[in-house]
Amino acid sequence: MIGWLQDSWDGANGWIFETLVQPALYALGLMAWAEDAFEWIDFVLFGLVQVLVVYAICRPLEAWKPVEPRSDQRSIRTDILYTCLSRLGLLPLLAFVAFAALGSRLSGWVAGSGWVPPTLETLFPLLREWPILALAVYVAVLDLGEYWRHRFQHRFSWWWSLHAIHHAQRQMTFWTDDRNHILDDLIGAAWFGAIALLIGVPPGQFPVVVVILRVAEAMSHANVRLSFGHVGERLLVSPRFHRLHHGPLGSGRDGKNYGVLLPVWDWVFGTADFRHDVFTETGDARLPEAMATGSWGQQQAEGFRRMGRALAKGFRKRAARRRRTA
């Protein structure tokens, strides 16, 4: 069965690459990127599978026990567009183009320094013998990184200006997971790349685990009255746990429940709220309407505008402080 699945997957992937992509790369003089493009198709196909699996699981849950009615179809459609751009490879492609050259230069510089970047397995040899454990450790470390990135998204006003798009959604569904500003996504890619340089990148031969993680992340945004109970709420971010972050307790600097996958970080750093019977409304009334219900383009433009204003305000404040101390 597994062999058949593998063969079918590789057959589809290979057919798309050989028939459509490779000839185009050849015609464009981009054959040096053939291997990356092959991986890219893999990424897109896998993204498609993820979207389908997430839909198959989350949509029935939302229909079964919704927190609120699905009244704003337009906003949901915008979130679906975000998911398509993110999961089907377009935004990651932009990030790749932006960072590929930089990454090569950086790794060349690192190699030139004589330092060979470690992986977690070289630091902790036991992990070599336990690949599933290694994956779990990678996921935990990366999740910790994401927790702090999320904290910073709320801490710095210019960053919050971008991240506010994610919080402006009043009709939160499992599609909202990917609702992010494009610049925010690029910063996230750089953040992840920096961590990857420090600990290596995780082994990738566990697609089932990856799909489970993806479902968990999407489900945390789902419009479903679902709590994982006293113990479960402390093990995995639930729809209730994350919904609270998208409610009145979430926006701005003093939010709660920043965890992406594991609530343990909120527990450790004192930002957890484990009230398992609270299902708040989502959205932030202080944010402009364009961020909540505007089109993808309007939301992106508003994010840039607000970030510009936040940066300018920061510069003015610093200048005033300098004048006072001079």
């Binding site: 990424f43 896998f46 995780p202 990738g204 031969q205 992340e217």
Partner: peptide, 19 residues
Amino acid sequence: MRLRSTLHLRLIAGAMALL
């Protein structure tokens, strides 16, 4: 928010083969 991972699809057989 989501865990921003570059985990790509690989073969589950890779894991199975460890056995």
